[in-house]
């Protein structure tokens, strides 16, 4: 119930912000918002494993890259439409996620962190060196920009800032819906049980491996969705799509926003996309300041910004909610 309230609150804020963006119609702001929306999809995906299941997938960007490359190859080499390539990208990412899962889901804690990270790094070097397919470091260039005619709205094109934002927000909406329903389906409760005490979860019949695979599959699929939209938006896919920097950013979004919460990753995504932009005035001190802000954030809001007091007060007025941080959504 409280999850539903929180979701609708989030949607209201998001709708308001999006409407404001479309009205102001500033290309620069729209670009930041578009990237924010795309990365919010990824943050939602990473949060399924890192926040709900409790396994720190430090190679998550792998699925972003798989989605990007699948889309690029299918549109450029096979002449598929972007929409069809997007569906294929999601499926491909899920498949890769399940394969990776076979190896990494035997591991826990820091082992899991480094193992998933190793997969990401291998993918990065494969993308650089498998030139016949990936065109090496130069990457795949000139993806056709997504464009379609919609009945009521007219033509939506990714080349147009407003069109790109609309596409990214649609993707985010899909991601929110999927995450919301999966977490509410009973899988969320099983994940939380596994996260909080895996042995206890097993002792009452929860199949940790099966639920971990489910989390990994959905999270990989969202990564593929984000990667496909990103590829369509920027029109180029290079090995840098697997870059460590992307991984760090998505992780920051989830942890700074609040692991295991609904709104946290989305709030975190827009924060992490926006703050460095705001810091541009600091010129060359921009990144050091950003680093210090991260340290401050983790010292002062270790549960994420959505756990901070104003939010907590807001929540206190609501019925049937645990008195302490909403690390998980309440009963439906």
């Amino acid at each position: 119930m409280s999850a539903r309230v929180r979701i609708s609150l989030g949607l209201a804020v998001a709708t308001g912000a999006a409407a404001a963006l479309f009205i102001v119609d500033d290309a620069y702001l729209m670009r930041i918002a578009t990237l924010g929306a795309i990365f919010a999809i990824l943050a939602l995906g990473l949060n399924l494993t890192a926040g709900h299941l409790g396994l720190f997938d430090f190679g998550y960007i792998l699925y972003f890259g798989i989605g990007g490359y699948t889309t690029a190859l299918l549109t450029l080499r096979a002449g598929w439409s972007w929409e069809a390539a997007l569906v294929a990208s999601v499926l491909m990412s899920v498949a890769v996620g399940l394969l990776v899962g076979v190896v990494v889901l035997r591991l826990r804690g820091p082992y899991f962190v480094i193992a998933t990270f190793s997969f990401l790094t291998v993918a990065y070097y494969v993308a650089i060196n498998w030139k016949e397919v990936t065109n090496g470091p130069l990457g795949l260039i000139g993806l056709p920009a997504p464009a379609f005619n919609l009945p009521a709205i007219g033509r939506v094109e990714a080349l147009d800032p407003a069109g790109a934002l609309a596409i990214a927000l649609t993707g985010l909406l899909i991601a929110v819906a999927v995450v919301w329903r999966v977490v509410e389906s009973g899988a969320g409760r099983a994940w939380h049980a596994i996260r909080d005490n895996e042995d206890l979860a097993a002792s009452v019949g929860i199949d940790a491996t099966a639920y971990a695979f489910l989390a990994l599959a959905v999270s990989a699929g969202l990564g593929g969705l984000g990667g496909s939209i990103y590829a369509g938006y920027v029109g180029i896919v290079t090995p840098e799509i697997f870059a460590f920097g992307h991984m760090v950013n998505v992780l920051l979004m989830v942890v700074i926003g609040g692991t295991g919460t609904f709104l946290g990753p989305i709030v975190g995504a827009f924060l992490v996309e926006t703050v460095p932009e705001l810091l541009r005035v600091a010129e060359s001190f921009r990144l050091p300041i950003f680093g210090l802000l991260l340290i401050a954030a983790i010292l002062f809001a270790p549960q994420g910004v959505v756990s901070l007091r104003p939010w907590r007060a807001l929540r206190a007025g609501r019925p049937r909610v645990p008195p302490v941080p909403p690390v998980e959504e309440g009963p439906a």
Partner: peptide
């Protein structure tokens, strides 16, 4: 788990 995330973020921040 929170400690793992917190220390990771803190050391990532430090590295930046």
């Amino acid at each position: 788990l929170n400690y793992l995330y917190a220390t990771s973020i803190a050391t990532i921040g430090l590295s930046i």
